[in-house]
Design a protein around this nucleic acid. Structure first.
Lengths: 307, 307
DNA sequence: TGGGGGCATAAGCTGTCCTTATGAGCGAGG
DNA sequence: CCTCGCTCATAAGGACAGCTTATGCCCCCA
C-alpha cells in the first residue's frame, strides 16, 4: 500500500534497465566538464535537454548521480562508480563503431584490410581506434573471412593488408607475427582443476569432457589438431559467451581463446589451468603480397600491431 | 549528384552511430534463435517490430546483418562479426546493471556489501553477475567508500561483507585475500621502454615524468608510497580512460592498475614494462567482523571470489 | 491443397526526447 | 547595492522512433 510503485525494477531486457548510450555519453561529458550546460553544448543539445536526461537516468537507476550547485555539477560517490561502469560500455561501443565503420567498406577507403575472424573480432577494433587517434582521416575498409579468402584478396590486389591465424604462411605472401592466440583451459574457481599442483597432461585433457564451441569452429579445429585427435565435448555451444557462462556457473572445464576471457580471469570468475605437452599457441600474422610491404596507412596500422 | 545522401556517416556522438541497446539485444536473440519472430517473442515484442528494427539497424550500419529466408534468418558473415562486437557491449551493460542494481541499495537486501572503489569498479560487477547466475533471487546492496568507511559499516553491523584494498587489516575485522591489484607501467608499443632488455629500476621510474591520475587518487597514493617519495607527473589526468588514451597515443609511460588495461594489453595497444625493486602489488581483501564470517549469500559471494 | 511458419508492408498511436521561453539561486565586479 | 554571468529547473509544444494490428506473400510439409 504505502510502498509506491517504484519498488520493483522494470521487467524486460537489459535495455530497459540500462540507460541508453546517449544518456551514458552525456553522463561522461558531465563528469569530464563539471557542468550540465557545458556537457550539453559539447553534445550539441540544449541545457534543459541535458538536465532532463540526467534526471530521468537518476530516476531509472534509483540513485543520485550528480550534485547540482549554482556553480556547476559534480558526481556523487555513487555517480562516480556508475560513470566508471558507463565508461566500459562506451569503450565497447567505440570498438563496435570502429569495426562497423570499417565493415561498411566504402570504396574510397584509403586502407583495405582483410582479416580472419578471431582477429577481426578481438583485436582489430582496438587497432582501428588507435589508428583513428593517430590518423583521424584514414578510412579503413574491412573484409572478414578465413585465411584462404584473405590470401585471395591480397593476391588480387583487393586488399592492402591482411591478418591471418594459422601455422603456415599462404604462398605468395610475406608476413610478420603480430600476436598470439593461445587457447587456454579454464574452470570456475571451485572446480578441482583450479587447485591442481602440476599442469594438466595432454592425455588428461583429451580424455576429459569439455565445454566447447561447436564442431567446425576455429577454436575447436585448433584444439583437435593440438590433441592429435578429437576433443570430447561435455557441452557444445554455439557462442563463446555461452561457453563462458557455462564454465563460470561450474558446469565443467572449457577451452577458449585467451583473448575471450581476459575480463573473467582478472575478476577470477574463471581460473586458467596450465597444460603441458600440447601446443595450444597459434600465431596471428599480418600478411601482404610478397614485395608489396604496406606503405602509408597500412604501415601505420602495422606499426600499431607490432610496436 | 548521383551519390545519394547516405555516404557521410552521421555526425554527432557515438550514440548516433551505434544502435541502441535494445536493437543489439534483439540482434543477439536473432543470432541465438535463428528467427526474427522467435527473437521478437522472446523480447516481448511483435514480429513486425523486430523486422523493422533489424532493418533500420542494417540501414544505420550500412551492412546486411541477417540473411532472411522463408525458413528463418541466419547471420551474414558481417552480421556474425557485428554480433560479436555487440556482445561485448551487452556484457558491459550487464555489469553496469548488476552494479547499479546493488547501488540502488534497497533496505530489504539479503546481502549488504561495502567495498572500496577499485573493487567496486572492476571486480564486483563480475562477481555479482556470477552470483546472480548461481542464486538469482539474492538481492545485494552496495555501498562504496574507502577502507575506513567499509570497516565502520561492518562494525556497526550495517554491512555483511566488505572488500578493502590496502596492506593492513582494520582492527576488529577478519579477512582473506581475494585478488591483487598490481600497478603496472605501460607505454605505447613504439616507446623505447617497450624494447628494453632488463626491467626498469625504481630510480628510473621515480625520475621519469609519467602520465598519472591526479594527486589524491588511489593509484597515485600507492605509487608514491612504493617509490618512497613523489612520482613526477608528465601529465595529470582525472580519469583512468584519459590516462590510457594518452599512453596509447604515445605521449609517454603511464602507471595504471593492471585491472584497467587488460584489453589494451591483449590487443597490444599498450605494452607492460617490468619494474624491479618496487612493490606495486596491493592485496585486495574480503573482510568481515571478527567472529562473524559470512553465511548464506555472503558465503556464496565469498566463494566466488576465492575459489 | 490446405496449414503453419517465416518475413514484409501499411496505417495509426504513443511516448520519448528535443526545442524555445522563462524563472530563480549564487558569486563577482562596477 | 545592483547587475551581469554563470549555474540549474520548469513548462509547453513539436518531431520522430518504435510499437501495434492487420494484412499479404512465399515456402515447405502433411
Amino acid at each position: 500500500m504505502s510502498e509506491g510503485g517504484d519498488e520493483a525494477y522494470p521487467r524486460g531486457g537489459l535495455a530497459h534497465r540500462v540507460p541508453d548510450l546517449g544518456a551514458l555519453e552525456l553522463l561522461l561529458a558531465v563528469a569530464r566538464l563539471g557542468s550540465l550546460g557545458r556537457a550539453a553544448r559539447e553534445l550539441g543539445i540544449t541545457q534543459p535537454a541535458a538536465s532532463s536526461r540526467i534526471r530521468s537516468m537518476e530516476r531509472q537507476l534509483g540513485v543520485a548521480l550528480v550534485d547540482r550547485s549554482p556553480r556547476g555539477s559534480r558526481l556523487t560517490d555513487a555517480g562516480a562508480l556508475v560513470t566508471d561502469w558507463a565508461r566500459r560500455i562506451m569503450e565497447a561501443a567505440e570498438a563496435f563503431d570502429a569495426g562497423a565503420q570499417a565493415l561498411r567498406g566504402r570504396r574510397d577507403s584509403r586502407l583495405r584490410v582483410a582479416a580472419s575472424m578471431t582477429i577481426a573480432e578481438y583485436l582489430l577494433p582496438g587497432w582501428l581506434i588507435a589508428l583513428r587517434a593517430l590518423r583521424p582521416d584514414t578510412a579503413v575498409s574491412l573484409l572478414a573471412g578465413n585465411s584462404a579468402a584473405v590470401a585471395e584478396r591480397l593476391l588480387a590486389d583487393e586488399a592492402d593488408l591482411g591478418f591471418v591465424e594459422g601455422l603456415s604462411l599462404p604462398a605468395g605472401l610475406d608476413g610478420a607475427v603480430v600476436a598470439h592466440d593461445r587457447l587456454i583451459v579454464v574452470t570456475a574457481p571451485g572446480h578441482p582443476w583450479a587447485r591442481r599442483r602440476g599442469p594438466l597432461s595432454a592425455g588428461e585433457l583429451a580424455s576429459t569432457p569439455l565445454i566447447l564451441r561447436e564442431e567446425g569452429s576455429g577454436t575447436r579445429q585448433v584444439l583437435n589438431a593440438a590433441l592429435g585427435g578429437l576433443a570430447r565435448p561435455l557441452l557444445e555451444l554455439s557462442s563463446t559467451t555461452a561457453v563462458k557462462a557455462s564454465a563460470v556457473s561450474g558446469a565443467g572445464p572449457a577451452v577458449l581463446s585467451e583473448l575471450a576471457v581476459g575480463e573473467e580471469l582478472a575478476s577470477r570468475r574463471l581460473v586458467s589451468v596450465p597444460v603441458e605437452g600440447v601446443r595450444l599457441d597459434r600465431e596471428l600474422r599480418a600478411v601482404w603480397r610478397t614485395g608489396h610491404r604496406p606503405t602509408g596507412p597500412g604501415r601505420e596500422l602495422l606499426g600499431l600491431t607490432r610496436g
